[in-house]
Amino acid sequence: MKGKVVSYLAAKKYGFIQGDDGESYFLHFSELLDKKDEGKLVKGSMVHFDPTPTPKGLAAKAISLPLE
């Protein structure tokens, strides 16, 4: 699924993505496929991810940034 980063707290390594389906997904650095892309996780960045339901809500897994 595609989505847009709505927040990312680099110090805490987490944030949120708004998916194309309108839902909010929890984003964690550990799910970023290329850790070098962390600096690109800023508000408004477009990402691809696997939407995954968890006991705490919806989460983004296997997060990647589109090729530039």
Rank of each mutant, 00 (worst) to 15 (best):
S7D: 08
D37A: 09
K12L: 12
F26Q: 03
D20N: 09
M1T: 06
K40I: 05
K36L: 10
G15P: 00
G57T: 02
L32A: 01
S24W: 14
K43W: 10
V5Y: 02
S7R: 14
E23Q: 14
S45P: 06
A60N: 02
I63T: 03
K13Y: 05
A60D: 01
K56E: 07
M1P: 03
L32M: 05
A10L: 09
P51H: 04
Y14K: 04
I63S: 00
D21R: 03
V5W: 02
K2L: 10
K2A: 10
L67F: 12
S30W: 08
L27G: 02
L67T: 13
P53V: 14
A62E: 07
L27M: 11
G22T: 04
F16A: 04
A11K: 13
G44D: 06
P66L: 15
K4Y: 14
D21P: 00
S7L: 14
I63G: 01
G44Q: 04
Y8R: 02
L41M: 05
S45E: 08
G57C: 04
E68V: 12
E68C: 12
Y8D: 02
D21H: 04
K35E: 09
P66Y: 15
L65Q: 04
F26L: 06
E38L: 07
E38Q: 06
G22M: 06
P55F: 09
F29T: 06
V6F: 07
F49C: 02
Y8P: 01
A59Q: 13
S24K: 13
L58D: 03
K4L: 11
G3Y: 00
L41D: 01
F29Q: 07
D21W: 03
L41H: 01
L65H: 04
D50V: 15
L9C: 15
V5F: 02
K56M: 10
K4S: 08
L65C: 07
G57L: 03
P51R: 07
L67A: 13
P51E: 02
P51T: 06
E31M: 07
A10V: 13
F29E: 04
K56P: 03
V5S: 01
G3N: 01
A10D: 08
S30N: 12
T52F: 15
K56I: 07
L32D: 00
F29V: 12
L58I: 05
K56R: 13
K35R: 09
V42T: 11
G15H: 01
K12G: 06
A59G: 05
K2N: 10
F49S: 01
S30R: 10
K4A: 07
I63M: 03
K61G: 06
E23Y: 13
K4E: 08
L27P: 00
D34V: 07
A10F: 13
K12Q: 09
A62L: 09
A11Y: 11
M46Y: 12
D21L: 03
Q18F: 10
F49V: 01
G22E: 04
L58T: 04
G39E: 12
L9A: 10
A10N: 09
Y8C: 04
G39P: 14
L27K: 00
S64P: 01
E68Y: 12
Y8E: 02
F49G: 00
A10S: 12
F29S: 06
Q18T: 10
G44E: 04
